[in-house]
């Protein structure tokens, strides 16, 4: 026990050290380039970030983007789970839906963005895009998880007349768990990447992606880095919260 705790501490310390080394390298590189349009260092990025945090638009932009992407994520989870359940129940439905899933999975996000802009306009863009990117991930993983439920235990449950809620909790959820955990991890990252990309293209008012676009227009590289840092931190926080909640639910 003591050995493993010491090893964990050593590893954490090593990781922090490496992260600081990368930051130092970034700062040195920006000093060497010495051009604030081409590259700004971590120090300037943090200064810009703190000045942005003080503005009213910061919370509004971050909040709006967060709500849209989280909404898209949960909509994708719901649609993916529902379709996976229908596919598991009916082979005909599975064959019917699989071309659609394959198409949605392979169409470039940029094409979807243009299409959604024409159909629905910019305000709901990142929500719809996050949902479209996330739903095939959840659909495929939940479908595989449902199929992975041990047949012999399901048969046992059927013969004994086990309650459906117990079958779900003790047999199905156990086999779904690894599939759900890996899909949550993947989907969180993809929802934020695609959602922000959609906002940069669609530029809905008061959004994180919109601010990234403006920093590009005005060649404000420090703002671009600051807003990107905000997006990365928001995505990481979102993933942590979702993973924690999922861990509690799947316990």
């Amino acid at each position: 026990m003591r050995i493993s705790i010491t090893l964990d501490k050593k590893r954490t310390a090593r990781r922090i050290l490496f992260a600081l080394a990368w930051l130092l390298l970034w700062q040195l590189l920006s000093l060497a380039v010495d051009n604030k349009i081409l590259l700004v260092g971590p120090y300037e990025t943090l200064l810009t970030l703190f000045s942005e945090i003080g503005k009213k638009t910061f919370i509004l932009s971050l909040g709006a983007t967060f709500l849209r992407i989280a909404g898209g994520f949960f909509a994708g989870l719901f649609i993916g789970a529902l379709l996976a359940l229908c596919s598991y129940r009916s082979e005909v439905f599975c064959d019917f839906i699989s071309p659609l899933v394959s198409v949605v999975k392979s169409i470039p996000v940029a094409s979807f963005v243009i299409l959604i802009l024409i159909w629905a306009g910019a305000p709901m863009l990142s929500l719809v895009i996050s949902c479209l990117v996330v739903f095939p991930i959840f659909y495929l993983n939940i479908y595989e998880g449902l199929k992975a439920a041990p047949h012999d235990l399901l048969e046992m449950a059927h013969v004994f007349g086990m309650k459906r809620s117990y079958v779900f909790k003790h047999i199905r959820l156990t086999s779904l768990k690894p599939f759900l955990q890996s899909s949550i991890s993947l989907a969180c990252g993809m929802a934020w990447k695609s959602g922000i990309a959609a906002e940069v293209i669609g530029r809905p008012a008061g959004s994180l992606g919109g601010n990234i676009y403006l920093s590009k227009v005005y060649l404000e590289t420090s703002e671009l880095f600051a807003w990107t840092l905000v997006a990365v931190l928001a995505a990481a926080l979102f993933e942590k919260v979702i993973k924690y909640a999922a861990g509690r639910c799947l316990k």
Binding site: D152, E155, M156, F160, M162, K163, Y166, H170, I171, T174
Partner: peptide, 20 residues
């Protein structure tokens, strides 16, 4: 039934296997 294989839920205790 008692199946040829035990068909118990491995992460539950014997008592919980029977309780469900």
């Amino acid at each position: 039934p008692v199946f040829q294989e035990d068909r118990l839920i491995e992460n539950l205790s014997p008592a919980d296997n029977i309780k469900i």
